[in-house]
Amino acid sequence: MDNAIEIKNVSKFFGDFMIDNLTLNVPSGSVVGLIGGNGAGKTTTIKLIMGALRKDRGEIKVLGVNNEDKEFTEIKNDIGVVLDEAYFPEEITPKTVNNIMKRTYKNWDEDLYFGYIEKFKLPFKKPFKKFSRGMKMKLAISVALSHNSRLLILDEATSGLDPFVREEILDIFNEFTRDENNSILISSHIISDLEKICDYIAFIKDGKLIFFEEKDRLLEEYALIKLSKEDFLSLPEYAVKGVRVSSSCVTALVLKSEISDIFKTEHTTIEDIVIFLSKGDEEI
């Protein structure tokens, strides 16, 4: 199997928003970061993958199985999902979650789950309604990691967590992908997190895929350049992908290969690339 997830020409129409002819693959053994602003369609894409929303058009395969086939229910044993919030009923405790999950997942690993509960210092008998957001997300992550998944689908899984815990969880995700059969699709607002663990970046805007690229290639391909307004106008238009104007200079995101070596460029980050591409050009 080449791809853990294959999304082919998928569209979903809402009244005022649509996922527009989306094609996106998550190669097996890789980590793909899904980036986009609020309302760009990240969560909708994840819901479409898991069959929680019905697509209007296109095809989605997860771990080689069409997500509309009956077999997909069985395949979900191999998928760990963390949604943007942890959706457990209020009265549920980590202890009862174990009882529920061991009757839900065929390959539920009780010891592994208890290990995560201990590692994350979650109170075993405290009801979910008394959990902080960080604790709720830790519980959801513990569940996703405790049934020997081959694919993790994470929607804003690290938001609401402090930097130390985020680091710890990113390490766990990194550990997960050491097995070359394991893959992750992760969406996050915290782009620096994605930059740390992703092999590929998919950028979505207004329900459309703007780019899907290897992270390292993006960092090689793009650069930042700071120029006076006059010098900026000498840059070839096709090389400029985004512009930010201040009173003293123009900062532009450029394609390194398309500009002359006489221009001094600066190293850029995924966050810069996404922000510049997202905002487009400002008036000069």
Binding site: M50, A52, K70, K76, V81, E85, Y87, F88, Y105
Partner: peptide
Amino acid sequence: EQSKWDSFAITMPYS
């Protein structure tokens, strides 16, 4: 409904 459990349940091996 209150906890949006259904959203989570559909990601589990349940049809």
